[in-house]
Simulated assay, not measured.
Amino acid sequence: MDTTTRPKILIVDDDEAITVALAALLGRSGFDVRVAEDGRAGLVEVERDVPDLVVCDVLMPHIDGREFVRRVRARQLWLPIILLTQVGESWERSAALDEGADDYLNKPFDPHELISRVRAVLRRTAQGAAPLRSAERLRAHDLTIDRTSRRVWRGDQELLLTPKAYVLLEYLILHPQEVHSRDRLLSALWGFDFASSSRAVDHRVAELRRVLGDNATDPRFIETAQSLGYRFLAPVVTG
């Protein structure tokens, strides 16, 4: 991305009230904004001029958000995509992430949180993290994750994780150096939108630290951001 110009954002959504408000807010926040009224028009816009990031609704006529992601990725375009999903449809969120979306936000959403998410994803892209989503293997220090087989190693030793702990580790390693609140991790990975269930995240983080041999007071992998959530500290590379 050329840092001397305004980052180019494409909004793909059939709700004009949302696109008008978001385009104005993103424009005031320093972005060059284009709008497409559905997934089919969005693909045309991507072909015409590849943006730095796409904000895309899931439920749209002609081509929905998940199909939009699939078609963009099928063209070997790894531009970042943030999906706008419906609250409560956790299967939509997990499926979309599996198919190549970089992040998601529940509808209705706080527009300022969207701005924060856009900037975080663009920072990852600028740091060269965009290929992480497409990689079959990820490495951080001596930790290796095979995303195809869902297996994990430290050095030559394979580690045994519960399915939820694996999903949490994969999500964190795909979003290095970002702080994720417990509520966000619950919503993204478990489909819960209630803060009262946030202890489930703490239990899984404790499991990960135990299996990884990570020290909470001097972590190599997962850091607790006081009163905020968790962050994956280690640099992540592909291969």
Rank of each mutant, 00 (worst) to 15 (best):
L84T: 01
L159V: 08
G239P: 07
S197M: 10
L25W: 09
R133D: 10
L161W: 00
F192S: 07
L53S: 12
K107N: 12
R147V: 01
G39I: 05
A41D: 07
E47M: 12
Q86D: 09
P219V: 00
L233S: 00
L43Q: 03
V50D: 13
R28F: 10
R139H: 11
R151I: 03
M1P: 13
G191A: 05
D2M: 13
D110P: 12
D146R: 05
V58S: 14
E158S: 14
A200V: 03
A234I: 02
V69F: 12
H180V: 02
R204P: 09
V121L: 14
A21D: 10
S196E: 11
R124D: 07
L105S: 09
S29E: 10
A96V: 01
R147T: 03
G100C: 08
P235M: 08
E170W: 00
L79N: 08
Q86C: 11
A234W: 02
D110T: 12
G239R: 05
Q86P: 07
V72A: 10
Q177C: 12
V205M: 03
E223A: 03
S29L: 11
Q127G: 08
L189G: 05
L26T: 07
L79S: 11
A74F: 05
D15N: 15
G100A: 07
P131F: 03
A24K: 08
A126C: 10
D49K: 01
R133M: 15
I115M: 10
E47N: 12
K8A: 11
F31D: 06
V167R: 02
V54K: 04
R184Y: 15
A24P: 06
V55N: 05
P108A: 15
L43A: 05
V12Q: 05
G88N: 13
D13H: 08
R231S: 05
L84H: 01
G65D: 04
R40Y: 13
S227V: 08
M60S: 03
Q76L: 09
A24H: 09
R40H: 14
F192A: 09
T3K: 13
H141P: 03
Y171P: 06
E99I: 03
E170D: 12
P51A: 13
Q226L: 15
R231D: 04
D57E: 06
V50F: 14
L169E: 00
E207Y: 04
E89N: 15
I9S: 11
G191H: 01
V35T: 07
T4M: 13
E89W: 10
